[in-house]
Computed example of a mutant assay.
Amino acid sequence: MRKQMEGDNQRRRALARQARERGRRASETGASLSASKQLTHLDQGKRAGPPPAGRHKPDSTRGGPAPPPAARPPAATPRSRPERGPGGAPGATGLGYRELVDDVGRRAGVDFRTAKVAAEATVLALAWALDQASRERLLESVPVKLHDVVPIDGIERHHDLPGFVGEVARISGRTPEQARRQAEATLAALADRDGDLVASLRVPDGLRDLLGPAAGG
Rank of each mutant, 00 (worst) to 15 (best):
A75C: 04
D160A: 11
S36F: 13
T61I: 13
K37N: 08
R62H: 09
P50D: 05
P151I: 04
S141E: 01
Y97V: 03
H147R: 11
A31R: 05
G94K: 12
L138Q: 02
D8W: 14
G54R: 04
D8A: 12
L138R: 01
A191I: 07
V149N: 14
S32V: 08
S27I: 03
F164E: 00
P74L: 09
D131W: 11
P78G: 03
T114I: 11
A48N: 12
G195Q: 14
G96E: 07
P176W: 03
S36M: 13
K3H: 13
G64N: 04
E140I: 09
L187M: 03
L124V: 11
D8E: 11
R106F: 04
G96A: 14
Q10D: 08
L207M: 05
A115L: 03
V165Q: 01
S27G: 09
G63W: 10
V117M: 08
L207D: 02
D194L: 04
P50N: 02
M5K: 10
G206P: 02
D148G: 06
G173P: 10
K3I: 15
A76K: 15
L187P: 03
V142C: 07
L100N: 10
P176E: 07
R106C: 01
L190N: 05
L139F: 07
L210Y: 00
P68N: 01
G96V: 00
G63P: 01
N9L: 15
V104H: 02
N9M: 12
R2L: 14
A108W: 09
P143K: 06
L201Y: 05
A125M: 00
L139S: 02
D192F: 09
P204L: 11
K116P: 00
R202A: 14
V144M: 09
A16G: 07
G166P: 00
G64E: 05
E99L: 13
T40W: 09
L130R: 06
A185K: 05
L42N: 14
E136T: 12
A108R: 08
T40M: 14
L139K: 01
V203M: 08
D209N: 03
R47I: 15
P68R: 04
D160M: 00
E136D: 13
G87P: 07
V203P: 04
G45D: 08
T40E: 07
R202I: 00
V203A: 05
A188P: 05
I171E: 01
L207H: 05
S60E: 10
E120K: 14
D148R: 13
V101W: 10
